[in-house]
Design a protein around this nucleic acid. Sequence first.
DNA 1: ATGACTCCCAGTGGGAGA
Length: 254
Amino acid sequence: MQFATWNVNSLTVRLPQVLDWLAANPVDALVLQETKTTDDKFPREAIEAAGFQVAFFGQKTYNGVAILSKHAISDVQKNIPHFEDDMARVIAATVQGVRVIGAYFPNGQAPESDKFVYKMRWLDALREWLKSELSIHEKLLLMGDFNITVDDRDVWDPVALKDTIHCTVQERDHFQGLIDLGLCDAFRLFEQPEKSYSWWDYREFAFRRNRGLRIDHILVSAALTPQVTACVIDKTPRQNERPSDHTPVVVTLA
DNA sequence: ATGACTCCCAGTGGGAGA
């Protein structure tokens, strides 16, 4: 089985690219972030016509998440239970016996900003919820746009970007907190190319110069880890006309 | 560098992203 995550930065703009990518990459399920569309405008018909079931949770202008699946989707959860949030950031569902959580973590803007404080609170709530999810679902995937670099290998210029947003000790401590729940960073289970990133700024020819960050991740629960046979970042869609600034990450399970 | 680019909602500019 294959599962993937992709921050599409507007599904309205990127829908044709998503459908093209799914045609070329027959994954079992794909989670999307930053759909940036309300549920009444979600392109359900086009996605179903492509052979996918879909669950979505969006809002106007910002955020918005979805799960697309070749298989039946059940037990859909939107956002983190018991955490008041006016932003649509999380959608979870069970697919083929795997609990799939798709998440668009807060950006955080800058350390010590109000948005950073919110990011920390959100991360606290996510961890508490995941504890209980893991107690219910042995096979679990947490994937999405984490807006956190795990370590300096994930940063194109770790010296210049030291302690800036996505690279702070506080954010990385939170990531480690998720690992401490028994989750594993699927990408690092394997030898990977140097300077592997999942996001590149639109400005300054950042993609062409490979000035990026690895901030999109797939975490797998302990029960699933032995089944992971591959995890790759697919840079192909970043070369499209009008690309998203993020590119998909794909995990393969035996 | 208070920038760069892209998206959105707006409405001929500004916020947000990362």
